[in-house]
Design a protein around this nucleic acid. Structure first.
Lengths: 332, 332
DNA sequence: ACCGTCTGCTGAATCGAGTTAGCTCAGCTT
DNA sequence: AAGCTGAGCTAACTCGATTCAGCAGACGGT
C-alpha cells in the first residue's frame, strides 16, 4: 500500500476511490502498529493543530471562575482539541507576547477571556484569526462573545423576593458604577422587575463588593434606623458582610430580613443560613465559547447565558412590621 | 544567503563558521521580514515543541488552587514555553486520553498535578517522559515531586499559639484520617512543637473539613462545657464553622478564644476578625515544578515548599481563666 | 482494433524548518 | 608549483504527514 492510500483511509476522505479490501488492510496494519499520526507533521501541511489558545487576564483571582476554564477544557477535549492557557495579568505587553507564542504554535483559534465581565478589546493581531470573547464584551459587533445574562439575573433576584411576599423595604447593597457591567445590568433587571409589580427599591447602600465594606455599610444603614425587609446583595461577598452586620444587630435571617445575592460562589453554601444566590454560569460560558469557536462560522453577536437562581435558605416571607421604622425613604 | 546559513545564525549555533558580515545580513533580513520561525516545522525536525502538559484531577474545585496553574503558566512563559492543560476529574480513561493527546502534540514534559495533596500514581506511559509531580507524592522515589511542607506548617501554627502565651486548652478541629496527607502531617508538626514546649493538645474535635460539620462539632464541644483557649483548625473552612459556633456561644475571638488555621484562602481575610492562617504556597508550587521540569536533569526526590504564616487578628494572649471548666481532659 | 471512461491506486512534490556532507577559494607550506 | 588547511558557505536530505497529478487495467461502445 502507498502512503497516499493509507492517508486517505485514515483521514476518512471519500473523494478518492478505495476498495473495501484495501481499506481493511490499511486499518489492520494501523492497528497492529498501533499507529498514531504525528500531529506536528500534519499541522505543518494542513495548518490545523487542533489546538485552542485561551488568553485571559487572570485565571485565579476570582477563584471560582476557574469553572470557565474547566468548561472550555472539557468541551475542547470532546472535540479532540487541546487548550493552551495564557495569563496576561492585564499587561498589554504580556498579552502580545502570549498571543504571538500561541500563533507561533499554530493555534486554530482563540478564546479571549476576562474573569470579571467587562468591555474589552482584543489585540489587533487577533482580527485575522477566529476569536470568541469569553465573559467580556466586544466593541465591534462582528465579534462573537459569550457573557452571563446579568439583566435577567437581576429580574430573577427581584422575582425571588416578590414571590416570597416582599414588596417594600427592599434595599440594594453594593455600588453600581457605570463601567461595571454586572452591577448596572443587575440593577436594571431589578428595577424593571420591581416596577412591573408597581414597586421600587426602598434605597441602596453604596459600597465596594467586599465583605468588610459591605459590613460597614449595612451596619451604618441599620444605625440610621432603616428597617429593611430584604437585601439584594450584588455578590456573595457583599452578602457575607451583610450577614455579619445583621447578626451583630440581632436580626435573624430570613425571619427578620431576607437576603438574595449573585454569583453563587462557594461562600453561598457555607453561610448560615445558606444563601440564595443567582449563579454565574461559568462552566456553561466556557462550554459555549468553545462550541461557537469550533462551529463552522463565527456569526458575531453576543450570546447571553442564563443565570439560574440557587434557592437556599435566606429568603422567607416578610415579618409583620412594627412601627418606628424609617423604611421607604430613599437612602444614599 | 542559503537557508542553511540563515538557520545557523538564527538558532545561534556556533559550530559552523560564519563571517560577521554574513551574520549581520541575515539578522537584518530577518528583521525586515519580521521573520518568525514556524515552530511546527521546527518541532517536526527537533522533536521539541517548547510545550508542557499539565494534567490534573480538578482545576476548579478547590478554587484558589488555580494559583498553582498560574505559577506554572507564568514560569513556563518565562522559559518560552506554553502550557496545555487537561483535566481528568479523577477518571483514569480520561486521563489516558488527555495524556495521549498531549503526547501526540509532542509536549516536552508533564506536570502531573493534584488539587489536594495526596499520594498519586501517574499512568505508565509517563514513565518514558519527563514528569514532575505537583502537589502530589510519588510511590517511586526516582520521580520528582513538589509538595507543601505540611509538617513545618503544623509547627508554625502551634508556635504562633505558644508565642502568644497559650500552652494548655489548645484543641484541634478537623479529622485526620491516615490517607489525608495534609491532616496527618499538620497534626504531627503540631504535636512535635507542643511537646518540645512540654505541653500537648487538650483534645481534638473530629469533623469533616467543611464549615457546617465544624460548626456542629465545635458547638458540641462547647456544649460539653469545654473551655478552649485556642483552636487549631485544619483549614479555613473549618475555622469559618468554628467562628460561627464561637460567636453563637457569645465567645469573642481572639479575646476569649484564639484561632489559627491553614490554607490562607480568600475566606481568611473576609472573616471578622481576620483569620491568622498558614498559607498553602500554591503559586510557588507551580513555579518550582516548572523550573524543575525544565532544568537539565530530573533528580527524583520530593521538594518541600515552605508554608508561611499569614498573621492577622485571630490570635491573642489567653484570657485569665475562671473556674468550672473541663479543659484538660482529652475529648474525642 | 480503437477510443474513451471509470475504478483503484501510486510517485513525487510540499509544508518550513534543522542537519549532514561536501564544495570553493584563499593563504600558507614545502 | 603542487599540496594542504581551514574559513565560509551551500546543495540536498530529513522529519511525517497531506495532496496533486497521473498511470495502469478493466470494461464498454462502435
Amino acid at each position: 500500500m502507498s502512503r497516499t492510500t493509507a492517508s486517505f483511509v485514515l483521514t476518512g476522505r471519500r473523494d478518492m476511490r478505495i476498495s473495501a479490501e484495501a481499506e481493511q488492510r490499511v486499518r489492520q496494519a494501523a492497528r497492529e502498529l498501533s499507529y498514531r499520526p504525528n500531529l506536528m507533521a500534519r499541522a505543518l501541511r494542513t495548518r490545523l493543530t487542533h489546538t485552542i489558545g485561551l488568553v485571559s487576564d487572570t485565571i485565579a483571582t476570582e477563584a471560582f471562575a476557574g469553572e470557565m476554564v474547566r468548561g472550555a477544557v472539557a468541551t475542547a477535549l470532546l472535540h479532540e482539541h487541546l487548550l493552551f492557557i495564557g495569563e496576561t495579568e492585564g499587561d498589554a505587553a504580556v498579552e502580545k507576547r502570549v498571543v504571538q507564542d500561541m500563533l507561533d504554535r499554530g493555534v486554530d483559534g482563540f478564546l479571549y477571556a476576562a474573569m470579571y465581565t467587562r468591555h474589552a478589546r482584543p489585540p489587533a493581531v487577533l482580527r485575522r484569526h477566529p476569536v470568541v470573547m469569553l465573559n467580556c464584551l466586544p466593541a465591534d459587533p462582528r465579534t462573537t462573545a459569550v457573557v452571563p445574562d446579568e439583566l435577567d439575573a437581576g429580574r430573577t433576584a427581584a422575582r425571588a423576593l416578590l414571590e416570597a411576599g416582599h414588596a417594600e423595604h427592599i434595599y440594594l447593597v453594593g455600588e453600581t458604577p457605570p463601567e461595571v457591567y454586572a452591577g448596572t445590568q443587575r440593577l436594571a433587571g431589578i428595577r424593571e422587575c420591581l416596577s412591573q409589580q408597581g414597586t421600587a427599591l426602598a434605597g441602596s447602600v453604596d459600597c465596594l463588593w467586599w465583605p468588610e465594606p459591605a459590613y460597614a455599610a449595612v451596619r451604618q444603614l441599620l444605625a440610621e434606623d432603616h428597617r429593611p425587609s430584604a437585601l439584594i446583595c450584588l455578590n456573595d461577598r457583599v452578602a457575607f458582610g451583610a450577614y455579619q452586620a445583621l447578626q451583630e444587630a440581632g436580626l435573624s435571617i430570613p425571619v427578620d430580613v431576607s437576603v438574595v445575592s449573585f454569583d453563587d460562589s462557594d461562600l453561598a453554601s457555607w453561610l448560615r443560613p445558606q444563601l440564595s444566590s443567582v449563579a454565574l454560569p461559568h462552566l456553561e460560558l466556557g462550554r459555549r465559547a468553545v462550541e461557537l469557536l469550533l462551529a463552522e462560522h463565527l456569526d458575531g453577536g453576543v450570546e447571553h447565558v442564563r443565570m439560574p437562581l440557587r434557592d437556599r435558605a435566606s429568603v422567607a416571607a416578610p415579618a409583620a412590621r412594627r412601627g418606628g421604622t424609617r423604611a421607604g425613604r430613599p437612602h444614599r
